[in-house]
Write a protein that binds this DNA or RNA. Structure first.
Length: 644
RNA sequence: GCCACCGUAGCUCAGCUGGUAGAGCAGCUGAUUUGUAAUCAGCAGGUCGGGGGUUCGAAACCCUCCGGUGGCUCCA
C-alpha cells in the first residue's frame, strides 16, 4: 500500500495509507481539533472533513470560529432548513441557498408564502433533524446523472442550474437523511454540528433576481458555533433596531415624511441645523482644498439630457414634464450642468484643474418599493463636485482627494474603511490608452498612500474607472459613502477642450466625486453611527439651561441670552417642573450639555454643569464654560466612547 | 414595479371569533416652588390611512387606492 505524508499545521508530519480521510488524520494528530473542525483545508483548499487524501498534503482544521468555518456552518444550516422545509411542505421546490455576511438564505418555489408560524415550525423541525445527528455525505457525479437524479425528484430549478454547467465541471450533491441537494460544498460532517441557529425573516425574491422570473419565497436565518455568539449577533440586530435612523429621526424631531411626497424627507428645524452644519463643514473644506462652489438650474430642456446620455440610460429615473410645448427634465445629476459651466469660457491648461462643487437638489424617480428612510429617497443633494483636469493631473487630484476623504472620516469618527478600485468593464467606452493610463495612475496612487485596497476587475463604470470608499459604522456595518469616478465620455459628448502649452486644443478628463455622498443618506448613516448623540458642533440644541425653580427663571433667561450672544444654540426651560423631571426630559432628547441654575448659581453668577454620560460636574463660571464649549465646537471634538 | 406583513389620539400601543373606541406618555388648565433621569389633580384630544362593498350593525370581513416595513442572484 502506498503511503502519503501528511502534516497538520503546527504538528509533525506523519505517514498514512492513501485514501485516509482528513478526519482520521485529524483524530490521530490533533484530537482536540477534530472535535471542533467543521471542515478542513487541504493544501489551502476548503474541503469536507471526510475528504480522502490521495497524496502528500498539508491539512488545516477549519473551525466555526474562522470566517471560512462560519461560512460552512451557515451553508449547512441553509441545507438543514431546506430539508426541514421539504419535510413540512413536500410540494416546495428548492432553488439556491447561499451564505451572506453572518447569515444565510434559501429560496423556495412554493404556492403559499411562508407565514411567521411556518418559520417557527420549520425552525422546530430543524432542531429535531439537527439532534438526530444525520451524517452529511458528498457524492460526485456526472452532469447527466445529476440531471437524471434531480429530474426524477422534480427539482426543476436544480436541473436548470445543471443546464448552465459544463460537462467538465465537478458536480457534487450532498445528502443528509432523506434530503439530497445539488451543492458545491463543503459541509459540516453531520447535522448535530448545527446547534445554535435562528430563522430571521421571509421575503419574496425573484428567481435569479430577475423581475421577469417567478417570485420565490426566501427565508433568512443565521447560525453560530456557540450560543453566546448567536446571542451577541441577535443583540446586534436589536441594537440596530434601536438606533434605526427612522426611529431616532422621529424621536429627536429631525425629519418627517408625508405621503403627498413619498420618498422625499422634510427636514424639521432641528434636522435642518444638522444638515446645514454638514454643508458648511464641507464648504470650509472647499476653501481649503481649492473648490469653487456654484448653483446650477433645477430644470433643463431635455435636449441637455439627450446630449449627456441620461435620456438614453437614466430616463426611467427622471421626472419629466411638458410646458409651453417644450419637454423638461428635473436634474438627476449635476454633471451635465457643470460641463455647460466649463464650456462657457475658453479654458487654458493654466486654469486646470477646475474644481466645481454643487449642493444642487437632485430628483430621481426611484421605484416605490425601494424607498427607505433617508437612505433611499427621490429628492436629495450631494456634496458633489466635478474636477476638470488634464490626463497627467489625475494622480495629483486623486492624492488630494484621498487626503480630503481621510480628513472627513476622521472628523466623523469612521475608523475603518475599505477602499475598492473598479477597473475597465467589457462594455467600456472611451479611448483604451486613456483607460490604461488612468488605471495605472489610480493603482499607483492608492499603493502610495493607502495601506490596503481591493481591486474589482471589470466593475468600473462604462465611462471610467472608479474608487469607492466603504466605512464601518459603530455596529461594524459597512456603508458606501465616498466615490471618485473618472469620466472619459462626458468631455467628449460636450466637446470640452482646453488650450495646452503647445497651443493645441486638448480634451480634459472629468472626475466625479462626492465625499459624504448623498447628504440625506449620510445623515441617516451618521445618525445611526452616533446613535443620536451628536458631537457639540452638530447638536441642534447645544445647551439646555434648566432653572431649579421659578425663582431663578430670570437668571436662566439671562444665561440663555449670553449663550446666544456667544453663538451657542440653547433652549431655556423655566417651567414649573421639578429639576429631576427637566433633567430627565433633557437626557431623553440626548442634549449634550445641561446648565442647571438655582439660587446658589444665581447669587454667584455661575452655572452647575451636567454633561451627557458624565453626569453632574459641578459649578463653574459661565464665561469659562462658554470658552470651553466654543473650543469644543470649533475643533469639532466629539465625545469619546471611553468617556461614557 | 413584484411578494409578504403592517396603518387605531401628537408618540408608543391595547381593542378575543363583527355589537358603533381605550391606556400610558406628550398637550392644556390648576395646585405645588422644587437641587441632578418622571409632583399631584382635572380637562381636552380619534373621518380607526382614503374610497367602495358585505351586513340589521364594520376599527375588525371582502375589493381597491395611498403610505410604511422586510426583501427581490455577493452563484449549484
Amino acid at each position: 500500500m502506498t503511503k502519503i505524508k501528511v502534516s497538520i499545521h503546527g504538528h509533525e508530519k506523519r505517514s498514512y495509507p492513501t485514501s485516509t480521510s482528513a478526519s482520521d488524520i485529524l483524530k490521530d494528530i490533533a484530537p482536540q481539533l477534530f472535535n471542533e473542525a467543521v471542515a478542513v483545508k487541504v493544501n489551502g483548499e476548503l474541503r469536507d472533513r471526510e475528504t480522502l487524501l490521495m497524496e502528500d498534503a498539508e491539512v488545516e482544521a477549519v473551525t466555526a470560529a474562522s470566517h471560512d468555518g462560519h461560512d460552512v456552518l451557515l451553508h449547512s444550516t441553509s441545507h438543514l432548513m431546506a430539508q426541514a422545509c421539504k419535510q413540512l411542505f413536500p410540494k416546495v421546490k428548492v432553488t439556491i441557498g447561499p451564505t451572506i455576511e453572518n447569515r444565510f438564505y434559501y429560496d423556495f418555489d412554493v404556492d403559499e408564502p411562508f407565514t411567521d408560524e411556518d418559520l417557527v415550525k420549520i425552525e422546530d423541525r430543524m432542531k429535531e433533524i439537527a439532534s438526530e445527528g444525520l451524517s452529511i455525505h458528498r457524492q460526485e457525479l456526472s452532469r447527466n446523472d445529476a440531471m437524471a437524479l434531480f429530474k426524477k425528484v422534480g427539482e426543476s430549478y436544480k436541473v436548470e442550474i445543471l443546464e448552465d454547467l459544463s460537462d467538465d465541471d465537478t458536480i457534487s450533491a450532498y445528502s443528509q437523511g432523506d434530503f439530497t441537494d445539488l451543492c458545491r460544498g463543503p459541509h459540516v460532517p453531520s447535522t448535530d454540528f448545527i446547534k445554535h441557529f435562528k430563522l430571521l425573516n421571509s421575503a419574496g425574491a425573484y428567481w435569479r433576481g430577475d423581475e421577469n422570473n417567478k417570485m420565490l419565497q426566501r427565508i433568512y436565518g443565521t447560525a453560530f458555533a456557540t450560543k453566546k455568539q448567536l446571542k451577541q449577533y441577535l443583540n446586534l440586530l436589536e441594537e440596530a433596531k434601536k438606533r434605526d435612523h427612522r426611529k431616532l429621526g422621529k424621536e429627536l424631531e429631525l425629519f418627517m415624511y408625508n405621503p403627498l411626497s413619498a420618498g422625499s424627507p422634510f427636514f424639521l428645524p432641528k434636522g435642518t441645523i444638522i444638515y446645514n452644519e454638514l454643508v458648511s463643514y464641507i464648504q470650509e473644506l472647499y476653501l481649503k482644498y481649492g473648490y469653487e462652489e456654484v448653483i446650477s438650474p433645477q430644470v433643463f430642456d431635455n435636449e441637455l439630457w439627450r446630449k449627456s446620455g441620461h435620456w438614453e440610460h437614466f430616463r426611467e429615473y427622471m421626472y419629466n414634464f411638458e410646458l409651453g410645448g417644450r419637454d423638461f427634465g428635473l436634474k438627476p445629476m449635476n454633471c451635465p450642468a457643470h460641463t455647460l459651466i466649463y464650456s462657457s469660457d475658453l479654458r487654458s491648461y493654466r486654469d486646470l484643474p477646475i474644481r466645481i462643487a454643487d449642493f444642487g437638489r437632485l430628483h430621481r424617480y426611484e421605484k416605490a418599493g425601494v424607498l427607505s428612510g433617508l437612505t433611499r429617497v427621490r429628492s436629495f443633494s450631494q456634496d458633489d463636485a466635478h474636477i476638470f483636469c488634464s490626463p497627467d493631473q489625475i494622480g495629483t487630484e486623486i492624492n488630494h482627494l484621498l487626503e480630503m476623504v481621510d480628513e472627513v472620516y476622521d472628523v466623523f469618527d469612521f475608523g475603518d474603511k475599505e477602499i475598492t478600485l473598479s477597473t475597465r468593464p467589457e462594455k467600456a467606452m472611451g479611448d483604451e490608452t486613456l483607460w490604461n493610463h488612468a488605471e495605472t495612475i489610480l493603482k499607483d496612487t492608492l499603493e502610495g498612500s493607502v495601506t490596503d485596497f481591493n481591486i474589482e476587475e471589470g466593475e468600473g463604470a462604462f465611462y471610467g474607472p472608479k474608487i469607492d470608499f466603504n466605512v464601518k459604522d459603530a455596529l461594524g456595518r459597512l456603508h458606501q459613502l465616498a466615490t471618485i469616478q473618472l469620466d472619459f465620455t462626458l468631455p467628449d459628448r460636450f466637446d470640452l477642450t482646453y488650450v495646452d502649452e503647445d497651443g493645441k486644443e486638448k480634451r480634459p478628463v472629468m472626475i466625479h466625486r462626492a465625499i459624504l455622498g448623498s447628504l440625506e443618506r449620510f445623515f441617516g448613516v451618521y445618525l445611526e453611527h452616533c446613535a443620536g448623540d451628536f458631537p457639540l458642533w452638530l447638536a441642534p440644541v447645544q445647551v439646555a439651561v434648566l432653572s431649579v425653580s421659578e425663582k431663578t427663571a430670570d437668571y436662566a433667561e439671562k444665561v440663555g441670552m449670553e449663550l446666544k450672544n456667544a453663538g451657542i444654540r440653547n433652549e431655556v426651560d423655566i417651567r414649573a417642573d421639578k429639576i429631576g423631571a427637566k433633567i430627565r426630559k433633557t437626557e431623553l432628547s440626548k442634549t449634550n450639555v445641561m446648565l442647571i441654575v438655582g439660587e446658589k448659581e444665581a447669587e454667584a453668577g455661575t452655572v452647575s454643569l451636567r454633561r451627557r454620560f458624565l453626569g453632574d460636574i459641578g459649578s463653574i463660571k459661565l464665561t469659562d464654560i462658554i470658552i470651553e464649549m466654543k473650543d469644543e465646537i470649533n475643533k469639532k471634538r466629539r465625545l469619546k466612547k471611553s468617556q461614557k
